[in-house]
């Protein structure tokens, strides 16, 4: 189907985009990479009267390191992150970027757009929540910085005001001895995962000094599996502690039954993914190079 007709506006700067949306009112929306919005328009599930395209604003697509943090622009495409040597230094980011949907989506979709969409099955929020991530925003009242955990407030809902947009995503580079992994289970390339697990941990010898575990697609937002983290923190990583943590992750998940699987099966997937992600993260923390990203049915 074709979308209902709408007015197309091209913003020349971030500031102009914010002003435009403020002036155009409630029936206007930002258009970033369009990988969620365009299908909604074509199904006529979303029918905005105005679209403000952010694609032509200079300086919005970058990956750079600055004062111990990695910075990503609003319009940085998934595929740019996938192929960035810099981003590879935080393996969880590479895992996530390289497995999002298919090549076409990765070439077009953006990290800023994905976070602002806050789809409960989206990959980025789940991967990034295991890291110290802040979202820089620009709105009518100027700029502000929001911790990612405060940014996504509910399914498809963020702390952004209507005319406010994401300008930059900033991820603190984890300390030495850290490792991470993001594993998502997908039935086919172009679909959202059935479940995903992100793990970021720091080892001191065999002891897990610190850990963050997040679960995706099994709740309204990414879920921090705090009980699972507690099961590992300060413990020696072995089959038993990993299994205990994975079981705690199963309990933390709150999935719905749908075409991607039954709630019970998704909980089982969380266990399988958590075990593997913890193991990969630990190996990476020890300096091993481990390839790993999405799993396909």
């Amino acid at each position: 189907m074709y979308p209902r007709s709408f007015h197309y506006h091209r913003a020349g700067s971030l500031k102009e985009a914010v002003t435009m949306l403020g002036q155009l009112g409630k029936n206007a929306k930002f258009l970033a990479g369009g990988q969620s919005l365009i299908p909604l328009l074509k199904f006529r599930f979303a029918n905005p009267e105005h679209l403000v395209d952010l694609s032509f604003i200079p300086g919005t697509s970058f990956i750079k390191e600055d004062s111990g943090a990695m910075h990503f622009g609003l319009m940085t495409r998934h595929s740019e992150i996938e192929h960035s040597a810099l981003a590879r230094r935080i393996p969880v980011l590479h895992d996530c970027a390289a497995g999002i949907a298919d090549v076409q989506v990765r070439n077009q979709g953006t990290i800023g757009g994905s976070l602002a969409e806050a789809d409960p099955s989206g990959d980025w929020a789940n991967a990034l929540i295991t890291l110290d991530t802040t979202v820089h925003c620009l709105g009518a009242n100027g700029t502000r910085t929001i911790a990612l955990s405060d940014f996504v407030t509910d399914a498809y809902t963020t702390a952004l005001a209507h005319e406010e947009l994401v300008t930059e995503v900033v991820v603190k580079i984890p300390p030495k001895g850290s490792g991470g992994a993001y594993l998502a289970f997908k039935r086919a390339a172009p679909v959202y995962p059935s479940a995903s697990v992100a793990v970021q941990l720091k080892l001191a010898g065999d002891v897990c000094e610190d850990v963050a575990i997040a679960l995706g697609c099994v709740g309204l937002t990414a879920i921090r599996a705090t009980e699972a983290e507690t099961a590992l923190r300060g413990q020696i990583l072995n089959d038993k502690t990993v299994a205990t943590a994975a079981e705690a992750a199963r309990a933390a998940a709150d999935p719905q039954s749908d075409m991607r699987g039954s709630a019970e099966y998704k909980r089982q997937l969380i266990v399988a993914l958590a075990k593997r992600a913890i193991q990969i993260a630990a190996r990476r923390a020890r300096g091993e190079k481990v390839e790993g990203a999405h799993l396909y049915a």
């Binding site: 039935r187 086919a188 390339a189 172009p190 679909v191 075409m259 396909y296």
Partner: peptide, 24 residues
């Protein structure tokens, strides 16, 4: 092709029907 008890087709998009691709 999955239908629910009242005849709604639950696999009307590629996201739900997942036709096979080279990845599989």
């Amino acid at each position: 092709c999955v239908y629910d008890a009242v005849g709604n087709m639950l696999t009307s998009t590629f996201s739900d029907y997942t036709p096979i691709t080279s990845m599989n």
